[in-house]
Nucleic acid binder design. Sequence first.
DNA 1: TTGAAAGCGTTACCAG
DNA 2: CTGGTAACGCTTTCAA
Lengths: 336, 336
Amino acid sequence: MSQPPERAVPTSTDVARRAGVSRATVSYVLNNAAAVRISEPTRRKVREAADELGYVPHAGARSLRSGHTRMVLLPSAHIPVGPLYSGFFNDLQWALRRLDYTVVQYGSLGLDGDGAARAWAELRPVAVVSLGEISLTPHGVNVLKRSGAKAVITLGPQRVAGAHALVMDQREIGCGAVSHLVERGRRRIGVVMPEEPGLGFFSQPRLAGARSSAAASGAHVEPVPLAYTERSAAALARRWRALGLDGVYAYNDEYAMLLMRALQDEGIDVPGETSVIGADDLLLGRLLRPRLSTVRVDLVTGQRLAELVDRVVRDPGGEPERHDLMGARAVARESS
Amino acid sequence: MSQPPERAVPTSTDVARRAGVSRATVSYVLNNAAAVRISEPTRRKVREAADELGYVPHAGARSLRSGHTRMVLLPSAHIPVGPLYSGFFNDLQWALRRLDYTVVQYGSLGLDGDGAARAWAELRPVAVVSLGEISLTPHGVNVLKRSGAKAVITLGPQRVAGAHALVMDQREIGCGAVSHLVERGRRRIGVVMPEEPGLGFFSQPRLAGARSSAAASGAHVEPVPLAYTERSAAALARRWRALGLDGVYAYNDEYAMLLMRALQDEGIDVPGETSVIGADDLLLGRLLRPRLSTVRVDLVTGQRLAELVDRVVRDPGGEPERHDLMGARAVARESS
DNA sequence: TTGAAAGCGTTACCAG
DNA sequence: CTGGTAACGCTTTCAA
């Protein structure tokens, strides 16, 4: 079954030759061109020839000729862990495919804003949906638009000049968590800051939100570094009483579960001595005892985002819009 | 800041005109061509012109001309949830980028094997690394190779003719789990089958492995459907005693945690009355009491896989290799 | 119905 | 060092 080393890639010329027609005819048949009517026998011949040769059109050549693509590019550096996010992602892909777009995730780990924008622009995507891990600059947006991108949409904490923005203000999460703890009478509140790389983009604004909420109510906020390991959690738990905190917002449910268990193992009563709240409303948080309180986040649905992409692509003229779309609300369970 | 609606995309011709040089010179400068020596002032002029125009080369045109790309395509239907997988993914992307490849994940949700292969082939990737969710057929492999892919590598339960295979036999996981339970004296063993779509690809072979292990030791295996909701778990727990099972392998740690909690809430002692084991060795599994036993899986590192890709791309002639790479071993904690 | 030809942006080759 | 030219694969307009 192994091929001769340098077998040429079949082109539409090969298909045409094999079917005994012109290249134009091949193109018409394979693209179901409505403008011209081709006889059924000819169509059959063309299709058969294409099949036999294993002909697949060259997307680059096509876009070169047509001047556009149907590619929606989603930059992805770290894929955030969690069912919330991956569910959203899958929805979005599915919805965009329904609208006949080709969805491509471009691994952009280790590229800076403008370098990334240039790399993306080389592919001439019709739209870019930036999930916010790569900070797109106004200049980057410009490069993309100049390169033919009809829609540049950012999903993140703030808008970027020139791009449509779906503003998901992570601060609301920290704010909601701390407000909840304050309502419960907590005054000295720890905020877990993950030590894992790549999370600062989320954890920093969450901390800022926590701070602003605390400031409004005269509570104290204390950032607490924590790595996602049992060791780190145990070490933190050991010096917990020295910190003198009576409540903690632990970044998300996973860190919260880890910390809560460590506190319990250290003999610290939750929520009696310390209240704990996470974020993301993971199912697993309900399995611990006490059940983990959390901040639930309403993400935009993939379907709605896909519709926005399509609308902007069809009518790129409009001024960039800004939608605020994150609702964050605390869900009280038993740990707070 | 908004652009005139139909601003043309700048090309190397525009750059050449603006810099007052020929297109060839632009190409030489921008690609750092070693063969020709261009004066420093000229280089500067060209770079400035490119910058001012926001020129970005057209990847399609380039690949058309050069006849190849540096794109490594990773099909992704569902992104499997979990730190294991996303860590591997990020490693792989990073390592491939180091080797100067462009990594692109292609959303292939809802495409069948051959349709997907054709869609991928349109992009003329130099390599395709299929994570196995999309079942690549021998015919699909052929289409890809014909379209110029030097390396087609599958990561999955079995090899596909014509492709290099990194065989990760999911059966080993089910096998390891059930063997562990049998060693613990369990004879009637439930195997949780997730009801969520898209997991059959993993759960079926795991069940098969469980069956073969049970057959070898005369134990009984009973497939048990379970959705990833508390309701479903509670319902299953309620009829648990009627099932008469004394051990359960729960697909992975997340389902295992869910089920274990439901069993405990129903008053069923774990591991006294029923042993529970999961898979994937999630950190969270160690937070429950009893601590969750699990099957740990050794995935190939992204670095090694990247090296394989590069090697095959450079020397595509060789016969497809097959590497067996999954080690699965049970980790006994307290739930079994 | 089909064919011929132009042109999309890029780069390699070859003469100046 | 620079510029002209051709070719990559494809679509589309115009003509036959």
